[in-house]
Design a protein around this nucleic acid. Structure first.
Lengths: 330, 330
DNA sequence: TTGTATGCGTTATCAC
DNA sequence: GTGATAACGCATACAA
């Protein structure tokens, strides 16, 4: 049994308008009537229909968010941050997952359009012409996390992946690495794939390595691919240091090394990316580039809400990162 | 610029009713007019307003879901399953987090009520009178995961925690354990706390242990608490086996043991619960009770949607679990 | 201070 | 086959 505003009005012996005024604190209502309304509100547990409200105000207080995979700890931390901050502003989140599939991403945007979300937060790895077109046809504030989308009217948020990878690589060299290899992401992933590779490459060349002999194995950010690619690298060449484009692959690589009786960091040093919850307690604990996804999520929510409110905000937000040195490096 | 159905009608030179018929495939429309409408639809990228639709149909095709913490891999796997299945039925999910806080849980329910979600999936650890009252006043199909809520009109879904903990404990004894301790959850957590403790207790007593001397440390399911409670246990008594109420605490316990130079499983065997993504690659890999959260999520979504559709469904759904034996036991 | 009437964007029910 | 029109539940302009 669900009440509407007329039911409440009838029960309280007032007009629907008065009930509305009481609920929203708009306009003046005589105390006696207000009390009567309040009482009925209490008794019935009435909640105004957000659909009807949204129809009038053209505001749903809902944010649409699309992530490739919510079970990936980075994204779930991000979403956690978004949800927390959004809630403080009275927003809820409509969560969708894309599996990094372009078509599914587009479907998500369409759903967001239908459901009239007030803002969209998108975490994806590609940025194609199709994205551009869809976004242009979606008159909803839009924020991209994890990629530098150069597009009008879009907020993008990212870390300087090239710089971070450069520093991580330099760290390995400073710890005595000579033969370094990278287990990276797909190069079409501009940020976590390409940019991190570029940082690695730049540092390696700077250290006098021949770029043509550099080993770069392209993984998919899973533990499994880290494990398998580590094995592939060992088959090809002797290495004493690995830069992985994320912690999962780094942990997979370490697991592979340990299984083969190769010591970390004595024989091979390993550095990852992200600082997963597990990286600190692994044996050995993992040296990594920490990205605070939770904070990123909070910032993303705040930014998009500011944009919704018509406030002027920066088009590009650079996130911080931090090298966490643990026991997988010397 | 957002179009409405009248705009489309005008552009196509037909009435709004006809546009509606074309969009929904309801009623007959002359081919020529249909084509004109379709063309305009295509050109404008028009999407019907789901708020207006929901107002009429009293269906939002949205599921509300509340989890204590989305960054916990168990819950994110669960949500992933829910989202996947829900999407196949044309539903989206409104995600909220509660931090296991009763007040926040209630707030989530209120929001769901306002936003007129079609069904609610709740994962919580307590079941109080307040829950009962709120649920009674929420005329929305309701499903609880992870607890056995005995309440009319609610679907609940869970594993037999007592039995699972019993079997895990028995496993430790069968591998030669003599002095066993448990790092459990809070006992007010009926399922993951209390029931698992009861299974542990039953098995221990059956093996002839004195229940009064049994060590049970109450943790909060975090790696940190596993670590600290392991240390606390070692200070108290010599143990050769640990049953932890989840993998995080089990991993924390192992980390503590290793830090102290105690070998796992040689000196102390450890069993966890859940089978986290990381448990298989930890050193040593963790023996655990596997719960398929993703599958649970899919089942939850399917059940609640069936209920929304008025289909008759089971009031209690028992989930399977499976002992995964790895290297943290002998 | 209060109530009535209108409109938000749809769909469904009627007439035509 | 098609087009007006009345809901859906609410907020607001306007009248009283």
């Amino acid at each position: 049994m669900s009440f509407n505003i007329k039911d409440i009005a009838k029960l309280a012996g007032v007009s629907p308008a008065t009930v509305s005024r009481v609920i929203n604190g708009t306009g003046n209502v005589k105390d006696e009537k207000r009390d009567r309304v309040l009482k009925v509100l209490e008794e019935t547990g009435y909640k105004p229909n957000a659909l009807a409200r949204g129809l009038i105000h053209k505001r749903t207080y809902t944010l649409g968010i699309v992530v490739p995979d919510i079970s990936n700890i980075n994204f779930s931390e991000f979403v956690k941050g978004v949800e927390k901050e959004a809630k403080e502003y009275g927003y809820n989140i409509l969560l969708t997952t894309s599996g990094n599939d372009l078509n599914r991403e587009v479907e998500c945007f369409e759903v967001f359009k239908e459901k009239r979300v007030d803002g969209i937060i998108f975490t994806g790895t590609r940025y194609t012409e199709k994205h551009k077109t869809v976004i242009d046809n979606t008159p909803i504030p839009f924020l991209v996390f994890g990629q530098n989308f150069e597009h009008e009217n879009i907020i993008s948020m990212n870390i300087d992946n090239k710089k971070a990878a450069y520093e991580a690589t330099k760290l390995l060299f400073s710890k005595g690495a000579k033969n370094i290899a990278m287990i990276g992401g797909p190069l079409w992933d501009r940020a976590a794939g390409y940019d991190r590779f570029m940082g690695f490459l730049t540092a390696a060349v700077e250290e006098g390595l021949n770029p043509n002999n550099l080993i770069y194995e392209e993984g998919d950010f899973t533990i499994k691919s880290g494990y398998e690619l580590m094995r592939a690298i060992l088959d090809k060449q002797k290495v004493d240091a690995i830069l992985a484009a994320n912690d999962f692959m780094a942990l997979g690589a370490i697991k592979c090394l340990l299984d083969l009786g190769i010591y970390v960091p004595k024989d091979v040093q390993v550095v990852g990316f992200d600082d997963n919850i597990i990286s600190g307690i692994y044996n050995p604990s993992l040296t990594t580039v920490k990205i605070d996804f939770n904070r990123a999520g909070r910032m993303a929510a705040k930014s998009i809400i500011n944009k919704i409110d018509g406030k002027i905000i920066k088009k590009y937000i650079e996130l911080e990162y931090k090298l966490i040195i643990r026991n997988s490096t010397k």
